[in-house]
Design a binder for these strands. Structure first.
Lengths: 132, 132
DNA sequence: GTCATCTATATGTGTTATACACTTAGATGG
DNA sequence: CCATCTAAGTGTATAACACATATAGATGAC
C-alpha cells in the first residue's frame, strides 16, 4: 500500500479531513466568509458552521482558523468585537465587512471554475483508471 | 476591489491558473499520475497533457513539475530512464509503476470526495450570496 | 468535591511545497 | 544571427499548514 513515508492525498493523521486545500488553492477562507455572511459569529461557531456546510466532512484546525480570522481582520474582510457575556469577555464576535462580502462573490466565481477543473480532472482520471 | 496586498483566491500574477491547489489538497500529483497512466512520457509532455486535461486552464510551473516528478520517483510512484535521442540524451522518460497506478485509483475516490465537498461549499456560498 | 468534558481562544514550531525568477542547451526557422 | 521552441533543471524567500499544547470558565457526572 502506498503512502507510508510521506503522507499523501488523505488529509489528517486520523484519516479525517482537516483542511480544504492549502494556500491559494485553499477553500477555508471562502468557507469562513460564507459562514459569516449569514450572521456574525465567533470563531468556535464558524468552525461548527463549516462542519455543517460540508456535511461534517471538514473540521478546521482551531489554531489555523483563529489565525485565519486574525489575518482576515488585518485585511479588512471581517471586523471583530469582544462580547461581554454575563461571565466575562471571552468571545470574539466576527462580522463580515462590505469588502469581505465582495470577496465572497469573487470567490463564488472562482469556486465554480475550480469545480469545473476538478470535474475535468476526475473525468481524465476515470478514463485512464476505468475502474468497474 | 479587494486583494491588493496579499494575493487572494486567483492564482498567478498574470491571472492564469498555475496550480491545482497546494500541499495535501493539491491536485497536481493525480494529474501527473493520470498523464502517465496512458503512456510513458517526459516532463515536458506531462505538462502539456495537464494543459489538455484541464482545457488549457492549468499550466503547471515547470520547476515545480520537475521537482514533483523527482519526488514521485523517490516514492516509487514512477520510474525514469534517460532516452538517448539522435541528438544526445536530453529527455527523461517517466513511466508509472504499479504502486503509482494503485495510488491513482486511491486518488480517484479522494477526488470524487473533494468534488462533493466543493459542491457543498458552492451551494452554501450561493445561498448567502444569492447573486442574480 | 473533583474529574472529565465542553466551550472558547489562543500560541509555538518544524515542515513543506510553492511561485517566480533564472540557467543551460540543442533544435528550428525566418 | 536572433528569436522561439523543446527540455530539464536550480535558487530562494515566503507562507501556510498540521499538530501539540496552554488557558480558563462552565457544565455535569458520580
Amino acid at each position: 500500500m502506498p503512502g507510508q513515508g510521506r503522507r499523501r492525498c488523505c488529509e489528517a493523521v486520523d484519516g479525517t479531513h482537516r483542511n480544504l486545500g492549502r494556500g491559494r488553492g485553499a477553500l477555508l477562507e471562502p468557507a469562513v466568509l460564507a459562514a459569516l455572511a449569514d450572521s456574525e459569529a465567533h470563531g468556535y461557531d464558524v468552525r461548527k458552521s463549516i462542519e455543517d456546510m460540508t456535511d461534517g466532512q471538514v473540521s478546521a484546525d482551531p489554531g489555523g482558523l483563529y489565525r485565519l480570522l486574525r489575518r482576515m481582520e488585518e485585511d479588512s474582510l471581517v471586523v471583530s468585537t469582544w462580547v461581554e457575556g454575563e461571565s466575562g469577555p471571552q468571545r470574539r464576535q466576527y462580522m463580515l465587512t462590505a469588502e469581505g462580502r465582495e470577496l465572497l462573490e469573487h470567490w463564488l466565481d472562482h469556486l465554480r471554475e475550480r469545480e469545473r477543473v476538478l470535474s475535468l480532472l476526475v473525468t481524465a482520471v476515470e478514463r485512464v483508471v476505468a475502474k468497474d
